[in-house]
Nucleic acid binder design. Structure first.
Lengths: 113, 113
DNA sequence: GATACCAGTAACCTATAGGATACCAATATG
DNA sequence: CATATTGGTATCCTATAGGTTACTGGTATC
């Protein structure tokens, strides 16, 4: 599992896999909002404006397929749907933290004369 | 500079900044190839197939604007152009390493039944 | 002098991401 | 009974990323 065992092509492939899962305008904002405690569809929508229902619906499905989000239906009346971040989603934290750190530093770097 | 000092909106902004710089189909493959020692336009193109000259040209300009790549023209005849990764580019390494790691693990995760 | 390599640019096209708007059935509220 | 909220879906549209093909001026090689 050491880095050295990976070829360049493998590295590129894995990086592209990762990008594919988390990139796009909304995926990480959605996950960050959900980590703040939003778990209902409309709550998430309101906390990540101005996403439309159509796009949010698609994004949540993608995230669910990638096992980052869990969709639960409670049949009790009124039927409710709950979205939660999966335990596996926590594995993204180091990556997201790196992205926050790098983005913050990069903004400084670029605004240097 | 502690994480706690950032609001959710700031975190989202920084993450989106980072995504904006490194996402897309080619940026990281190009940087990875350049780190392997490719520094001429055609060398880079050949090592990241099948990128076209048009796209490679645009990508290199983006990377240059973000100070990740340095373009040097040697006026000696024949005039040559050299692209190198900047020292600043090394700051991306922890992030890229995380992406490689996460992507590798994610592939296993998703292929679980 | 023809051919090939270099670092690109120009013009055009396509596929996809994302947005706008409208709508749905089910339930709750005034 | 009218209106609002829930979790969405259906159509349609637009903007952009990326691809295709052709071409350029400069140099080097056969």
């Amino acid at each position: 599992m050491k880095d050295k065992e990976l070829t360049i092509d493998q590295k590129i492939k894995y990086v592209q896999d990762t990008l594919f899962v988390i990139s796009g305008k909304w995926k990480l904002p959605i996950l960050i909002a959900m980590n703040q405690g939003c778990y209902r569809f409309r709550d998430i929508q309101r906390s990540v404006p101005p996403i439309t229902t159509r796009v949010l619906s698609r994004e949540l499905k993608d995230l669910e397929q990638n096992k980052l989000v869990i969709r639960t239906i409670y049949e009790a009346s009124p039927k409710t749907v709950e979205y939660t971040v999966s335990p596996y989603c926590k594995s993204l934290k180091p990556l997201v933290d790196e992205m926050i750190k790098w983005g913050q530093n990069h903004r400084r770097k670029i605004s240097e004369k």
